[in-house]
Amino acid sequence: MDVIIKIDRVTKRFGGLVALNKVSFNIYKGEILGVIGPNGAGKTTLFNCITGVYSPDDGRIYFNGVDITGMPPHKITQLGIVKTHQIVKPFNEFTVLENAMIGALFGKRAGKISKEEAREIALKNLKLVGLAEKKDELAIGLTLHEKKFLELARVLSAEPDVILLDEALAGLNPKEVEESLDIIKMINKDLGKTIVMVEHVMHAVMNIAERIVVLHFGQLLAEGTPKEVAEMPEVITAYLGDKDLALKFVRR
């Protein structure tokens, strides 16, 4: 398998707090990778380092062999890595279609794409997530669940290679979670996008991810298939504080 993103000893500190401590791992092309860990483990910080929101204090990040450490976020987006936000951030006064069009206009083909093309790409992705009928409504009027899908359509319109999903399932009911998982699988299988997801909905991530990375207090605790990871003693120890979760791990 080809490495698409290589994370090499990345360290990020906030004042005295070490949010990430020499974290290294690879993300492979075409896979679904789950990143798990308790609150404060550094998952969101890791995403923010990859997408350029934070610049790591130490270590490098490579994308397709290109060093992207410290690049501004919009450059990284245009290279082909996008992120959905944990707290959705639609452009409220834009219509659903305009929201998605921004993704296309400033995405991987930024500057090389006409407004008409952008509109078509946006429509295509809105159809994919099932929001095509609401394309002319203002984003502010959507439900949380629809806003999450809009966010997905928006980043898809940027035509990325890698999509980072930051708790895309949080706050959704079980039915909506299932719907979302189907779409994520489809994006991965049919569109060939690499997907990295930070997730708290544990059964979902164990179910969908091909590989799992476990972060704990800013350090890489474990890496492997869901089954392997669930059976690792250090993972179970780390999660012992959360008994249900540990049990769920072991049962698998």
Binding site: H74, F91, F94, G107, R154
Partner: peptide, 21 residues
């Protein structure tokens, strides 16, 4: 469109590839 996106949510605009600065 990029400017309007900035006025809506600057961080989101930057994340979507708008060269905000």
């Amino acid at each position: 469109m990029g400017l309007l996106a900035i006025s809506e949510d600057e961080d989101a605009a930057e994340a979507l590839g708008v060269p905000t600065r």
